[in-house]
Computed example of a mutant assay.
Amino acid sequence: MYREFCFVPIFIICLTTACDRIVDHSIGQQGYKIENGVFKTISGRGMMACWNACLLRSRCASLSYSRETLECSLGRFTNKTYTGSTSDLFSVPDWDATINQGANQPCRSRPCPRSQLCVPLSNGNHTCTIEEAKSVDLTIMLDVSSTTNSTEFQDMIDSLPDVINKLYDVRLAVVFFGDLNPVVKFGLHQYNSTQDQINAIQALVYERKSGSKLAVAIDLVQNDIFNGLAGDRPDVKNVILIMVYPNNVRITDLETAASAARNDGSEIVIVSIDLKSDNGIYVLGLLSSDPINEDLVLAPSFAHLLDMGTEIVDAVMLKLS
């Protein structure tokens, strides 16, 4: 049964013993395909090209391939569903296995951010590149609750220029949240250039608010910013970037607000700062979708934000793919 996988159109380099390992640990599951979580589909390619497409993308956890339609699917998860078709192949690749040792070797360690493509170079090195630049309408929500002091607020502010500079074609809004009265500091329509957006961010002044009622602020974003008006582009993905100290956030209506935002087409990225309580973990669970690792960036402290621009941008860009 396994030997039928070992032919040239599937694997260019395939010794008898290697084929057994490929089938047992990598391809090996005929009659299955990815159940859910497909993030990229490639048509008209061979199995080897499908394998390499997964290898070059750190986000890829599994792949499935149809030998009938020549369609390759790359998945975020390792789940599978039974199809019964002998044309369908499913794989959770083992990049440490001794197969295709010469192919794309620099990318085997999955060195690139999840939103980028690893490109092997002829000198044996690699480079990471954005596969497709996409526009984003971005609302940044800043925690100015009583648990955030002025120094910590400034750390959030100082981390944002790097984030904005690394994104493509951004329309930007900023919201302060804490008590029952979150505030839109500026909207999507107010600043068009990257430098004007950065200047507006750097001009923001700390305003301490009692409480940490995040659900109210998420509702505000959906009603007043991502409403199809005042700079909200209909053909561009809406992303809410929440920078929050989660340990004291009120959980009332939080899951409802986050779910409603997603149902309206918005994506949510959470930058969790100084997570250290069961309540904080619970809050992140209420805010996040599956898989949580694609929604969440963990900052050990406010000061660490200054070095986390690449991670934050990577999380935002995953929402655009």
Rank of each mutant, 00 (worst) to 15 (best):
A133R: 09
S122M: 13
T139Y: 04
T148E: 05
G124A: 15
E131S: 06
T148K: 06
E131C: 01
Q154P: 07
I140T: 05
T151C: 11
S115D: 06
S135H: 10
E152L: 00
E152R: 04
S115W: 04
D158Y: 01
D158I: 01
S150I: 11
Q154R: 09
N123A: 10
D162I: 02
T139M: 02
N123Y: 06
S159G: 08
L160Y: 00
D158E: 01
T147R: 04
L117T: 11
L117A: 10
Q116A: 13
Q116S: 14
S150T: 04
I130K: 13
T147V: 10
M141L: 01
L121A: 06
T129P: 03
S122E: 13
F153G: 01
N149S: 08
F153V: 03
T148F: 05
I157N: 02
S145G: 13
D155H: 14
L142V: 06
C128A: 12
E132D: 15
S115L: 07
H126W: 13
V144L: 05
T129S: 15
L138F: 08
S135A: 15
T147I: 09
C128K: 12
P120W: 11
S159I: 09
T148A: 05
P161Y: 05
D158S: 13
I140C: 07
S135R: 15
E152D: 10
S150M: 13
S146R: 07
T127W: 03
Q116C: 11
H126S: 10
T129C: 09
S150P: 12
C118A: 03
V119K: 13
E132G: 07
T129E: 11
I130P: 11
L142H: 05
E152V: 03
A133N: 03
S150H: 07
C118R: 09
S135G: 12
D158T: 05
I140G: 11
D158P: 07
L142Y: 06
T129D: 14
D155T: 06
L160A: 03
T139G: 00
M156K: 11
M141C: 03
S135D: 15
C118L: 02
D158L: 02
V136R: 10
K134D: 04
S150V: 11
G124P: 12
V119I: 12
T151I: 12
S122T: 10
S150D: 15
T129Q: 13
T148H: 02
T129L: 05
G124C: 15
P161Q: 00
D162T: 14
D158N: 09
I130A: 04
T127A: 15
M141N: 00
T151K: 11
D155V: 01
N149R: 13
P120I: 09
P161K: 02
C118Q: 00
K134F: 07
Q154H: 05
D137I: 07
K134V: 09
D137M: 06
I130E: 15
D162P: 05
D137Y: 01
I157G: 02
S145N: 10
S159V: 02
H126M: 13
L142C: 08
